[in-house]
Computed example of a mutant assay.
Amino acid sequence: MTSSKSGPPGSSGGISGSIAGDLEPCGACGRSVAPRALFCHACGAAQPPRPLDPFTRLGLERRFDIDLDQLAKQHAGFSRAMDPERFAARGPRQQANAKAQADALHDAYEVLRDPIRRAHALLALLGGTPVTDDEDEEIADLAARLARADDAPELDRIGLDLGQRVEACIKYLPPAFRKAQGTGSADGNALEGAARILARLERLEAMAADARARRVARTQPHP
């Protein structure tokens, strides 16, 4: 990856600029523009966003255990660079491109800040397939326990138990993905292992949300 300024001429921001890939001509000056370029480094024109995975769009390594502080900084820096108001003097087309870039950056940020969405994005990039038919007796027992729960203290206990299991799954995902990526090309068996942890995480998170909703319903005054 090369580094270059990420604002139009006259700016002083220094944010990572372009990546290797198919170059396309700038719509304003015709010079070649790299896939992740926010603007043309020759004329400063805001470019429409290209189809990119969320990691690449925000200049981060494709891995599950990303630095969330760095994610926030990257998002904030790129978003400031593509504030449509910075391109007001360049006309409505430039402002529209800048807004489209800012929206794409925000979408990528929302994916990467959420562990489940981040794991799905990485799984897809590695060629993995989500698990939909995983039989898990422990999950089934927890679901039955939640279905029987009829008072606030029991819902609190179940919610705490589910929360701990959710955190455990999130903790297990980084080494699972590192194992899958460790050989330089995705390991099919290790990738399936990561997919199974992800499936378990999703089911636990769904039950935790259900427990929270039912707990709130029991504390709300009845009309």
Rank of each mutant, 00 (worst) to 15 (best):
A209T: 09
R117L: 09
G14K: 13
R80W: 12
A124V: 15
Y109R: 00
A147Q: 15
I158K: 05
P49T: 01
A149I: 06
G127K: 04
P153M: 12
I19S: 01
A42C: 04
A119S: 14
S4F: 05
M207P: 03
A108L: 03
R63Q: 15
L58S: 08
P84C: 08
E154P: 05
A206Y: 12
E138C: 10
A46V: 02
A180V: 07
P48C: 05
A124C: 07
D65Y: 02
A199R: 08
D141I: 02
L191K: 04
P35G: 06
G159S: 13
R63W: 10
D136H: 07
E202R: 08
E135V: 12
A46L: 00
T219H: 12
N189D: 13
A81C: 08
R80P: 00
A213V: 06
G17H: 09
A208K: 10
E110G: 05
G7I: 12
S11Y: 06
D133H: 14
D187I: 07
L191I: 14
A45M: 13
F177Q: 08
R31Q: 13
P92S: 07
G184E: 14
R57Q: 05
P49A: 06
A143L: 09
I19E: 06
L71S: 11
E137P: 13
N189V: 14
L112G: 09
R196F: 02
G91Y: 05
H120N: 11
A96R: 01
S185N: 15
E192G: 01
F55G: 08
A45L: 10
P115H: 09
E135W: 11
E110W: 02
L160E: 08
D107N: 04
P221Y: 07
G91I: 11
S6M: 08
A152M: 00
A206P: 02
E138G: 08
I19W: 05
L52Y: 03
R31M: 04
